[in-house]
């Protein structure tokens, strides 16, 4: 598809929160994502599942602009994210444009990635103070409120090295939320955790789903959790969406052979 065929902005009556339009990602000869088309509507919780190497994490990383894309355009809230308009066509976004465009997206990582030289509270305040330019008092109030929400207010003055994995991940969620994103990305946030602390993190995400109008995209290996809280599940296989559907229907009545194989393999492993 020619670049000029992509709209500079999506029309008012067709504006999903996120739209992947023919998005392709490859590393050299290896195509990780092949012409991905995916819409996520406002307030929707979409879970991405699939075998490793299926490109599911890449979807999140592209949306966070941690990876550049090789083809297609990603739109967020109707405006292009990966590209910017110039002389009536879309060209790859520069850093300044990206900083504006990605400001409504937040992300949590598999390995938390808290800043080790800052306390839990400082981690949460860093973005609001340095990026949003909030006064310290306001950033502190906002951060403490969020740490309270994730149940980490008692540990706010601890450094990450003194916290368990589950605690670190909860701080990381608070840190991302402190930027007031409209879209939250969760990249295998429980995969590096000990089984007994997974619940404390999933409970926080559950709370977010129930109490906030965030749009969320999550990659996970926990099928039970995905089934519980997702509006929709996308099964990725070899860089394409093999099957997607409403969560309950997806798990109880998968249509495609690959999906059935994957789900039974995961079940067997559980």
């Amino acid at each position: 598809m020619e670049m000029s065929a992509y709209p500079l902005e999506l029309p008012e009556d067709d504006r999903p929160m996120v739209r992947f339009m023919n998005v392709t990602k490859s590393y050299g000869a290896l195509t990780v994502l092949d012409q991905l088309n995916l819409d996520i509507t406002r307030g929707e919780m979409v879970t991405v599942i699939g075998p490793s190497g299926s490109g599911k994490t890449t979807v999140l990383r592209m949306l966070m602009t941690l990876e550049t894309i090789n083809g297609g355009v990603i739109y967020v809230d109707g405006k292009p994210l990966t590209h910017m308009p110039k002389n009536g066509v879309l060209v790859p976004a520069n850093e300044r444009y990206l900083r504006k465009a990605r400001s409504m997206i937040g992300m949590c990582f598999q390995h938390f990635n808290l800043f080790p030289h800052m306390t839990a509270l400082q981690n949460c305040m860093e973005g609001p103070v340095q990026v949003l330019g909030l006064p310290k008092a306001e950033a502190r109030a906002r951060s403490e409120e969020l740490l309270e929400m994730v149940g980490m207010i008692d540990k706010k003055d601890q450094y990450p090295s003194r916290l368990s994995g589950g605690q670190q991940q909860r701080v990381a969620i608070a840190r991302a939320l402190a930027m007031r994103p409209k879209i939250m990305l969760f990249d295998e946030v429980t995969s590096a955790l000990d089984p007994e602390v997974i619940g404390e993190v999933t409970n926080v995400i559950r709370k977010l789903v129930n109490e906030h109008d965030l749009t969320m995209l999550m990659v996970t290996h926990q099928m039970g959790f995905a089934r519980d809280i997702s509006d929709r599940v996308c099964f990725f296989y070899q860089g394409r969406i093999e099957e997607q559907g409403e969560a309950e229907a997806f798990f109880t009545n998968p249509q495609r052979e690959r999906t059935k194989q994957f789900l039974s393999a995961v079940k067997a492993a559980d």
Binding site: R99, F109, H111, N113, E126, G127, Q130, V131, M179
Partner: peptide
């Protein structure tokens, strides 16, 4: 992961280095 976390918080290159 530290660079990526800084990017996810939308920090500038300068802040990412300095802080």
């Amino acid at each position: 992961g530290q660079w990526e976390a800084a990017r996810a918080l939308n920090m500038s290159t300068r802040d990412t280095y300095m802080r």
